[in-house]
Design a protein around this nucleic acid. Sequence first.
RNA 1: GGGGCCGUAGUUAAGUCGGUUAUAACGCUGGCCUGUCAAGCCAGAGGGCGCGGGUUCGAGUCCCGUCGGCCCCGCCA
Length: 598
Amino acid sequence: MGSWRRTSYCGEPASADIGKKICLMGWVQRRRDHGGLIFIDLRDRAGIIQLVFSPESLNNVHAKAHDLRNEFVVAVEGLVRKRPDGTENQNLPTGQVEIEVHEIRVLNDSETLPFMIEDDSDVAETTRLTYRYLDLRRPALQKKLMLRHKVAMATRNYLAENGFIEVETPVLTKSTPEGARDFLVPSRLNAGHFFALPQSPQLFKQILMISGFDRYFQVVKCFRDEDLRADRQPEFTQIDAEMSFVDREDVISVMEGLVVRMFNETGVKLNPPFPRLTYAEAVGRFGVDNPDVRFGLELKDLTRDLSGSGFKVFADAAAKGGVVKAICVPGGGAFSRKDLDDLTEVAVSFGAKGLAWVKITDEGWQSPIAKFLSDAEKDAIAKATGAVKGDLLLFGADKAAIANTVLGRLRLNIGNRLGLIPKDVLNFVWVTDFPMFEYDEAEKRHVAVHHPFTSPMDEDLDKLESAPLTVRAKAYDLVLNGSEIGGGSIRIHRSDVQSRVFEMLGIKSDEAHSRFGFLLDALKFGTPPHGGIAFGLDRVLSIMTASDSIRDVIAFPKTQKGTDLMTDAPSVVDQKQLDELFIRVAKKQSVAPSSTGA
RNA sequence: GGGGCCGUAGUUAAGUCGGUUAUAACGCUGGCCUGUCAAGCCAGAGGGCGCGGGUUCGAGUCCCGUCGGCCCCGCCA
């Protein structure tokens, strides 16, 4: 660089700058060498501008330009000038002007790249992740990370303005067996003892309320050692907040303000309050607790109408306390045999034993089960579902949980299949009144639907032991377009209630004390009523940016196997490191030399 | 733990029923070219098909195993 200093970004020069002498630094995006004139597109994070090198220019710049290659790093000094009439590039923000280069310094060269730095290049994700530093040069990815920065800043500003204080909580903390699997960190100073990375700062933020901070927030990494998905990474970022002396409505209204502020960064104006659904409504009408309310195809309950049906599957489901429900697919009568087979496969994969369907045709009800249905039943079904000629009815008859899940998933599948889901729409919905517990068949005990520190509803408190599955929690989720982007609750602030909940979860008193003793103790020393919420920043951003995967809004994401292709983490470590930690590896790791990639 | 899809030049893909020297585009290298912006024209260099075994006279093509990537179920309080 020598004494040169950049005077502007490549994306900045405009007509107003014509005649100015400027200095730019950036990467060579592309070279167009006409033998005479040479054009170089110079790129930095702000944009692209065209440099012009004329054979008549001084300082040998034309020869130097001839030798430039993609991704060379250069500094240029030159004059901003108007492009000749008719050569303006309307596709470029800087397209009215160009830089007449007077002097150029090549700051670094570059080998030929494994892929082009272009937004529309279709490169295997393996290659992109191996060379993530190159992938991150793509303007689209830079824009996403810049938006991420802006959203985080907007969050901090909004919460600070509203009296929230950002407090850092430990990353090395205590393992809490409830919930997700922990990432463990061995303690060298305490042989055989382990820290856990936090699944969330849940207990610390409650402790901060007990300490009197009143309003807390943090933009914080959380860790869960579970299998990955398109919308799940083992480390992810939460916007975590907690408030004292509040009820659900206080939390929701403050947080709606936050969501407005976040989406304001994308130019979207939201108008809270957002719609509400209770958990029971969400599951009843949409089959899931994270309903995508952008389209219809709602589930209709036919249990009463079909409890006496001649179709044994329906009658049995009703008799055993289950449900019979259906969705009506408008125009679905045109579905082929293969379509129906596909849908059956989907239904079975979510636990159905099969999929009963009816096509309503000109000739009447066409279906393997039509002969079992009486005219009265058909009338009742048609009335409840609104089905008319040309429609398809799909039935779920099972325990409520299975029937709802199956139909809920079919609903999404069909919504996608038929293009019923509008893009460019943001449909928020709060889901409230979650059940406190559900019964875990595998573990033979009740588990918390939200988490063990969630307060039961006051009016359900006396049913805690007698009818635990009917107890509702003061929990709420914010769902956006079918994706859970946030969740929280009013917490238990009385140690006696907390103890009763632990008891219901099958956590014995001594066990509770060894795991959460600090919280149980703290609850005894003047704990204010409090509650809060956490938003999944990565999920919010992937919806904002219409990304297919959460990986696109994370600078250095992990693969589905939880590895980092750029650094090659995780890796084996020296025996010496293990010895210091008193760790012996039980099963010899398979030696896995990488056979693909760089 | 399970189901599905996919690995062929640097990249993206084609490769028929197993059959000569494995195609193309982009990129790359060199040349020509003074208004291009996916510059153009000409010439050229790149791979032995993720890896290992097997069947066969003969294997990108078939079989088995394995490694890796993606999507999903389970899991994710």
